[in-house]
Nucleic acid binder design. Structure first.
Lengths: 203, 203
DNA sequence: GTCTATACCGGGATAGAC
DNA sequence: GTCTATCCCGGTATAGAC
């Protein structure tokens, strides 16, 4: 960095959240640190603590923002998928995959265990809204009961998260798969799960 | 610790690998450290470095052992599942889930990015054998081509890994799901993926 | 082969100046 | 509101004694 150290003039709190997303996308949650976020913005390592009491509260703000933005991305993908409920629900897997690949902020961040004790109502509302949205997309299919809708959503989230994790871990890089290609396979897997739910299992 | 500090009499190398599994199961890869493994065994923090040049080589040994044991668990589960190829393949998801829940050593450990540069032939043979075994289980189903077999295996691994990650992250604890229950749902999801592969998609 | 002790690094968090 | 400076902690890894 050749930039001179100077006061950050502007909304440092928002800038910290934005920079946190960039850092997560670059190095992942494992190597995320408040100090690195501060370095990224060219502010001192103490500055973030004026806006967040500790690391967990910064991550909580990131989690809430991620839940909100991910919900938007899912709604947009559902619209794009057309009128068929199964297609709209399957689109969740693709939207999730793309969002997490580009931001690094997946469910392991949004629902990180270290956040359970952080009483951030904003975050909790956004995460609730996110889950409600996905459950509504599932309810719009011909799934017979609420319980089965929950189980279906669970499996779709699992497969989307699985593809995302494997991709982040470098599992697909040897096969040189593109983001688009893997996103497509995640959607196809979700379609398969939805289809199986609506058809009798052969014994 | 009331235990006296004393020499570790025995195979410390093997003990380090075993203790590493215990630590992974307790705190996960995120908080895994060589120092903690040494503490667990009551040896000095320097002792591990007599047997492994660095942290990555210790993890590489863990990775190889995990790949070998996981392959055994998968073969056993396939046997238990009976003669139907689809059931045998679906059993992979359950075996994977149970193995990772009890050991903490899943694909994120076995194929950890930090191991790519560690030239450990033992590990590489075990990981190859693991993948080969799963691909063979897929080939035994009526999957039409090798490529589709790879894609099917990929989706099964993704869903199994997804359930495992979500479980480890505490996603299911609010619903107080047991390990057995979630393992069953992972197998059911794998069955759905296999079934979809062998049936024409409705457009 | 394991010990003690230590150098080094980096992150979390706080104190006090401006 | 941000700075500099500092403390504490814990992990990685090495040196040298036993």
């Amino acid at each position: 960095m050749s930039r001179e150290r100077a006061y950050h003039h502007g909304d440092l709190r928002a800038a910290l959240v934005t920079a946190s997303f960039e850092l997560l996308a670059e190095v992942g949650l494992r190597r995320f640190s408040v100090a690195a976020v501060a370095r990224k913005l060219g502010v001192s390592s103490a500055a973030p603590y004026r806006h967040f009491p500790d690391r967990a509260h910064l991550l909580s703000a990131v989690s809430g923002t991620a839940a909100r933005d991910l919900r938007s991305a899912i709604l947009a993908a559902a619209e794009e998928a057309g009128p068929v409920a199964a297609d709209r629900l399957a689109a969740v897997a693709g939207a999730y995959f793309r969002y997490v690949v580009s931001t690094g902020a997946g469910l392991h961040v949004i629902y990180a265990a270290e956040l359970y004790t952080v009483p951030d109502e904003g975050r909790r509302e956004h995460t609730r809204a996110l889950m409600d949205t996905v459950l509504e997309l599932a309810a719009a299919t011909d799934v017979p009961s609420y319980q089965q809708g929950v189980a279906l959503v669970e499996s779709i989230i699992a497969v989307a998260h699985g593809y995302t994790s494997l991709f982040a871990e470098g599992f697909f890089h040897r096969g040189s798969s593109t983001v688009d290609a893997v996103a497509g396979r995640a959607v196809a897997a979700a379609q398969a799960l939805i289809r199986a739910e609506s058809e009798p299992a052969r014994t």
